[in-house]
Simulated assay, not measured.
Amino acid sequence: MKIKSSEFIISAVGPKQYPEDGLPEIALAGRSNVGKSSLINRMLLRRNLARTSAQPGKTQQLNYYRINEELYFVDVPGYGYAKVSKTEREAWGRMIELYLREREPLRLVIQLVDLRHPPTALDISMYEWLSHYRIPICIVGTKADKLSRNQVPKHGKIVRETLGMPKGQPLVLFSSETGMGRDELWSIIAQAADIPLNSPSEPQNDPQETEDNG
């Protein structure tokens, strides 16, 4: 995918703030510190468009990024971080559930899991919830560069088995550091959003973030 333009649009806390232009939306979900911001920056070949938070779980809005005037990435608040009140967590959960279940332009949820470790109980719960409501899912195993070449397929198999993924459901092995999986993920996104996929563009002197708290 050739990135012609990418920009942050809004941090939304409810439907009244969502964009109304009808462009397809690709949501990114995962536990805190799984690498969502770093993935967004690598996918868009930007250094700091999606900013990492100094405190995991601090982001509590839906962050919209518009790409090529063709689609949005929607960064969903990270789950699994407990340093917020029960009331805040409940309100946060309702906002996310409302968005994922009822947002008409939503075309795909990219669920990120840390490839280095088996999916957590929260990862499994999120996957089962999305599957129950028949929301299209693509699983991305992040931080693949932290594993040896021989470990990557083995850990990918563990992710598939732990989540109980059906045959044919996409699992992208990804590294924000090296760009591994970027072209494959763009192909899946373009198909889901029904937009043309241009020739992959390569980063040119564009250093990437290696850690992420978002």
Rank of each mutant, 00 (worst) to 15 (best):
P153E: 01
D212G: 12
E20I: 03
L23K: 05
Y133P: 10
I3G: 03
N63Y: 04
P118K: 02
I110S: 04
P153V: 05
I26G: 03
R182T: 15
V113T: 13
L185N: 11
V152T: 08
G14H: 06
S125Y: 12
E211T: 11
E211K: 02
F8Y: 06
Y99N: 06
S176R: 06
A190G: 10
L100T: 07
D75L: 08
Y79K: 03
Y18R: 00
R182E: 04
Y99M: 07
K2N: 10
V159M: 07
S53I: 03
G30Y: 05
K58F: 12
A12H: 04
D75A: 03
K36V: 12
G14E: 03
G179R: 00
A144N: 04
L108N: 01
A54Q: 13
P136I: 07
G168L: 09
A91H: 15
A193I: 11
S187A: 15
V152I: 14
P200N: 00
H132E: 14
Q151D: 14
P19G: 07
L171Q: 06
Y99V: 05
P203L: 02
L49F: 11
A144H: 09
G179D: 03
D206I: 10
T52E: 04
H132P: 08
E128K: 15
D183Y: 02
F73S: 11
Y127A: 00
S6T: 09
G214L: 12
P105E: 01
L122R: 02
I188H: 13
D123W: 09
S176D: 01
V13R: 10
V84S: 01
A121F: 14
E211C: 05
D183M: 05
A54K: 15
A121C: 07
K2V: 03
S187R: 15
K154P: 10
R42K: 15
K36H: 11
A193N: 09
R134L: 12
R107M: 08
C138N: 06
N63M: 00
E184H: 11
I9D: 00
V84D: 00
T210H: 14
K167T: 14
K154H: 05
P24F: 00
E102A: 14
G141V: 11
E184G: 02
A12I: 02
P105R: 02
P170A: 02
R31P: 10
L108G: 07
P170T: 01
R42I: 11
